[in-house]
Structures are given as structure tokens and as C-alpha cells.
Write a protein that binds this DNA or RNA. Structure first.
Lengths: 107, 107
DNA sequence: ATCACGGTTCGATAATAGTTGAACAGTACG
DNA sequence: CGTACTGTTCAACTATTATCGAACCGTGAT
């Protein structure tokens, strides 16, 4: 579990939004679909893989389904305070990776 | 200043290493060169740009040089605890010499 | 003005990451 | 076993990022 991998996994708005939902409790993969609409399951599975390989989530089979859950304690013990800081951030994140940061002032 | 942009900027080992050095104090751009060796100045400038546009650093001209510094307070007020959590992390990406038992979770 | 110096920007290329349909894998059910 | 259901993996394709030389910009010295 490497900090840069965790940060990268959380640096995507879709993945971060999912992690925030997972902070409230585990979800089946099918319920990891974004709120606004559906994405192909292969795409979703790939996003989950990125989070899983970074060590952010866990993926446990249960019958025909799989429960996805946040690895809170592992993250907390490895990077104390990190998850709390990220989850505390107000809703937003925009989904905009190209927008100009409004506060990038000096320079 | 968007959290995903900040996380992305910090998700690269080279950029994160630089941010850690900047945590000890401002540096001239020329001194932002990585410890191990030199990289082309255009590459370095590009890395600085990524950090700057994410809102992580500030780049202030001073004579012919420019001072690069961490935007600690801005980061702290926008994302309380985030920077502390990331800077607190020990030896960066080099900590794992035993394979990867914890990176790949069940699944 | 001219030159040297410290950095940034531009433009092309290389490297990574994301998306997606199709094929595949495991489980439950009859 | 065969089918339906949930989700993963594969492979091709697209899109975003990184790298780096060359050209350029602002400053200070001559």
C-alpha cells in the first residue's frame, strides 16, 4: 500500500465519489454505479480494480454478488488522518479535470 | 482549488518528493532538482506547473530567479489535515521489500 | 543595446490511463 | 448438466500525461 497509488486512485472524481459513498457502508458492485446514470459493468469493474490495487477498497464475494467496502482501518493505520481529510471535503469535486483552478493565484 | 487536482498532483512520486522538500522551506527552481540526478529544466518546469495549477505550490519571482514554496495555509484551510497526513508518511515509495501482501485485497 | 542567466512555453513524441464489448468464471437453481 | 445472474478479464481503441529540445521572456550586468 503506497501513498502515491492511494492518492492517484482518489484523484479521479468518479472514484472519489464512490469512496465517499462507501464511507457510509459496503455496497454490492451493482450499487456502485454512479448516481447520475449507468456505466458499462466492465468500466465499473475497472474502476474498482484501480481502487482495489491501491489498497483503498476490498472486494468480498458473497453468493453470486460481491461486497465492496472501504479499507478504513488499514488506511488509517498506514496513513493516519488521510482518509478523514479527504472525506471531510464538501461534496463537489465537479468532475472537471481540465478546469482552471480558481485559486492558483501567485506567479 | 479542487481536491482531485491536489490529489493528482501529489500522486506522482517525483512531485510528492518535491513537496516534501518544500515543506522544509522555499526553494529556487534550480534547487527543485531531484536529489539523485538532474532532469531537463523544461521537465522540471512542467512538474512545477502541475503542482502550481493544482494549488499546491506558489512560484514567486525574485530577481532573475523564482522562489517555489508550499501553500501550506491555503491547503490547510481548504483541506484540513490533508497535507499533514501526506507529509507524515514515512519513507515514501521505498518501504516494501517483501512482495505485496497488503496491496492486493481479497477478491 | 547586447549578452548571460534562470525559467517558462511550445510542439512533437512517448508512455499511461480510461472506456468498452465480448468472452470468461463462479454461484444458484431446476 | 444447462441456464440465468453477477462480476472480472481480455484486447482494441481513445484520451490524457509526461518528457524533452528549441525557442522565447524578464532581469541584471556590461
Amino acid at each position: 500500500m503506497v501513498v502515491t497509488d492511494v492518492l492517484f486512485a482518489l484523484s479521479d472524481p468518479a472514484r472519489l465519489a464512490l469512496v465517499r459513498r462507501l464511507a457510509e457502508g459496503p455496497l454490492e458492485v451493482a450499487n456502485c454505479q454512479p448516481a447520475g446514470g449507468e456505466i458499462p459493468k466492465s468500466t465499473l469493474s475497472h474502476q474498482l480494480k484501480t481502487l482495489r490495487e491501491a489498497g483503498v477498497i476490498r472486494n468480498v464475494p458473497s453468493g453470486r454478488q460481491r461486497y465492496v467496502s472501504l479499507r478504513r482501518e488499514d488506511l488509517e493505520s498506514r496513513f493516519p488522518g488521510l482518509l478523514a481529510a479527504i472525506l471531510a471535503e464538501p461534496g463537489e469535486t465537479g468532475g472537471d479535470r481540465h478546469g482552471r483552478p480558481s485559486a492558483a493565484s501567485p506567479g
